[in-house]
Amino acid sequence: MMLLGAVLPIVFVILFGLFFFITVKIGKKYLTIKITHWLLLVYVGVLVLASVTVPLFAQEHGNIKSVQEKDDHDEMNDPYSQLYSKLSNGEVAEIDSSYLQEERNFEHYSNKSISIVPNTINGPQVFVERKEKADATIEVAIYSTGLVVDELDFSSLLKPSEVELTDNILTINSIYQEFNFAIAGNGYPVRQFTGETMFEHHSFRSGDSFVYLRIPSGIEIEGNIDALQLIN
């Protein structure tokens, strides 16, 4: 299929080049080339050119891949619920690494207490796990369900939430992001047979983000504790 995809445009170009050549060559002999002929040739030429070059314009390169989204609306199995339940149970090891956006550590933390300030309006859900050791390292892991629109995975475009530590204040903020996508799909009669839908049943994964903190033992957590979810 991949080979076919690579070869077909070339075949098309050659065929249409031949078509163009033959039309002009034979055309001169048997018919008077008129404006309509030129119009048609130019139009077809532009279309072929567009078809060959359209992959260059489409932002398919990079990390945007097609993912097969399961069309089950099982609340327990969708990425958000899975991620949430695993995080809230502290089963970090079981989380698929593709959900992990960023990991960072604040080492040599010497304060006795830490004040965690999450943005409670739009910000990510914050989970806090107490480590058993007092290694003076605050581990931060940012997870995201990813941004998937109609089987296109845009997760790599998402910026992870900002986690900053100044003195003993850890602020967690999300970055407001706006995306304008243009999605080009197959035209009508093709969709009839591929079963694609373009205007109904859109599948979204809305890029929900979670911050998972591991705080060394012995450091007291201050601040708005209600906004945090503590893992036992």
């Binding site: 706006e178 996508f181 080009a184 373009m198």
Partner: peptide, 17 residues
């Protein structure tokens, strides 16, 4: 939702068809 806003426009040759 939250801090993400996504606008999607769909292009296809439907109208041309």
């Amino acid at each position: 939702g939250g801090d993400i806003s996504v606008n999607i426009k769909y292009y296809s040759s439907d109208m041309i068809f």
